[in-house]
Design a binder for these strands. Structure first.
Lengths: 352, 352
DNA sequence: CTGTTAGCGCATTCAG
DNA sequence: CTGAATGCGCTAACAG
């Protein structure tokens, strides 16, 4: 049997012997309808499995109730930033509680090069956009966003006219306090590419905290790794960590701004017979998923994705609704979560 | 200045001094318009930055040109299945080349419990759906999909009336041939929860290949791990691997159906002074991202996400367009990709 | 061959 | 509570 076309309010109106206006009122709670007819109409709508057509609603409405979540992605490193997963699921949650349609819109470097306008800005079915980080990878997109006026947008973890940024100051302090508390004095820092705001911000937070706690970090114990795709990066991290750990007075703890660097350090340590966390402590930075995808699970600093999502949406909402001027950049503190990669400094290495 | 509303074909028609029909024809290549007026109209549309309103197009069209990619997700383990990333980016690519709107629709266990109909089935803005695996986590969704008639759907890596499944037979053979080729004879198997089709299918592929190559796998060298969330799982893997590796005649290679198990084995080995890959070889199964997010990068079996996406879309297209009966379940071979976790069996352990 | 007119589709809402 | 108008892109039917 051919599937009958979806019912419209007209079908319902006929069946109920009322006008379409009555149906609309009854279902949306607008206008005036008697409780009597309202419940009859509801009943019938239920039976016929009525669902309003989004297209028809969008035709009428001046505002769409939709928000694009724009995710710049270079196909090659699609899976590298573990942040997209948690961000998306948090936006899904938010969409459910706030009743808005989030439209996930991946824009690839290749596409942006020949047409920088994101797909979701094309059909007039969103009111604005939230843009996730990793924009340095897709510069054309940024230029386009700045140049257009129609859609308000706010950035997550990226400087922009309106943005919300992770703040790692507290978490960095906490991490260093934790390490000092269990006896570590000789600590190494390792950072990912500083043109990514998360790494740059982690660095400044760590350096600030180190100063506050009078921690001396040797220059040889500081590393800055440029961007390398995938495996190449890791090989470099391992080489560095191996080198550092060969020194007789090597550090007993490593603070890293990237999970892969952390993993590389652990690997390098283990290969020289140094156990983690018994001999060497390591912390990471990134998502829960990445922290728990290997062993030992990493004590690490994590962005507060929930808050990032909520705040960015709040800002966007203000921008969409109001002439109201909102605070243009906000910060949300990251948090340190303790797992299994930090322990007391070994007896033999205690100094003072 | 207030932003002027987006232009419509009416605005263009006025500006060009023609009818709206002419504009529509010119822009869509339907009907007949002289090259003359066509280029004039195109010019004007360009200048005015005209974009057709999706809502208006959808109103008229009987088919929407949209496809939902339904991703069942339990918030808690959102980041666990690394497959979502590669799948999504492949669908984005596909959407660009095929000119279809893919609508990513995450459905959480919680939501499905009180309303099993996916959001994307509500407003009549897609023609059908592709459903990714991990459905066992959200059983209500499956029941709903089976019960409804309106939208055709095809499953990826999950048994269903229409589905496309990864086939690891060839890759498993290749993996075992690789290991045997470099001298391994004493091999262990470790599998994740068998109620996930990927693990179950990996198991049968490995067992089949083992028989073909006359490989004897001791019963103590086989492990089946039930589903445990996150860290708990890993601790168990490590305990098992540690135990196995303590045996004097321990295996020299581990074939695992999950990257986390692989990582746990490597960790356990390293802690007992066994190097990977020099002393112990390990393979994994999963995504490129997970294989390269730690060290050593894992030689592993990977689903062919590109083909999975393409085939599932082809099938769905046939279902949407045709009364045509399509082949109802198709298989796409996974592939073995060599990285750094497999090497020659150590001299001392060579047998025969 | 080139073009126009007159609806269609459907949920919402203003004026009765 | 009802009738009719609105929003906009598409297309069958018709005219020059």
């Amino acid at each position: 049997m051919p599937i009958s076309p979806p019912p419209t309010i007209i079908d319902i109106a006929k069946r109920a012997g009322v006008s379409t206006r009555a149906v609309s009122s009854a279902l949306n709670g607008t206008g005036r309808v008697s409780e009597q007819t309202r419940s009859v109409i509801r009943q019938i709508a239920e039976e016929m499995r009525y669902q309003p057509r989004l297209a028809a609603q969008l035709m009428r409405a001046r505002t769409t109730g939709g928000v694009a979540l724009i995710i710049p992605t270079d196909q090659a490193e699609a899976s590298e930033s573990g942040a997209h997963g948690p961000l998306m699921t948090n936006f899904v949650d938010l969409g459910e509680t706030e009743g808005i349609r989030f439209h996930f819109d991946f824009v690839s470097k290749a596409r942006a090069a020949h047409d920088p306008a994101p797909q979701s800005f094309k059909g007039a079915y969103v009111d604005g956009a939230i843009v996730t980080d990793s924009m340095p990878q897709v510069p054309a997109l940024r230029d386009y966003l700045m140049s257009q006026q129609r859609y308000p947008w706010v950035c997550i973890n990226e400087e922009a006219p309106y943005c919300v940024l992770s703040d790692f100051d507290d978490a960095a302090r906490e991490a260093i306090r934790l390490l000092i508390g269990v006896g570590h004095r000789n600590i190494a820092f390792a950072f990912g590419p500083l043109d990514f705001i998360s790494h740059a911000s982690a660095r400044s937070s760590f350096e600030k905290a180190a100063r506050e706690y009078d921690l001396r970090v040797e220059n040889e114990s500081r590393a800055y790794f440029p961007y390398k795709p995938r495996r190449e990066g890791i090989a470099e991290y391992v080489a560095w960590a191996t080198e550092v750990l060969r020194r007789p007075d090597h550090p007993t703890a490593f603070l890293c701004s990237d999970m892969r660097i952390s993993r590389a350090v652990i690997y390098a340590a283990l290969r020289q017979g140094l156990l983690v966390p018994e001999d060497i402590s390591v912390t990471g930075m990134g998502t829960t998923g990445d922290a728990e995808k290997g062993y030992p699970c990493l004590t690490s600093i994590e962005p507060d994705f929930r808050a990032l999502a909520e705040l960015s949406y709040q800002m966007l909402k203000e921008l969409i609704e109001g002439e109201q001027c909102v605070q243009s950049t906000r910060r949300v503190p990251g948090k340190l979560v303790s797992r299994d990669s930090v322990a007391n400094v070994p007896r033999g290495m205690l100094c003072g």
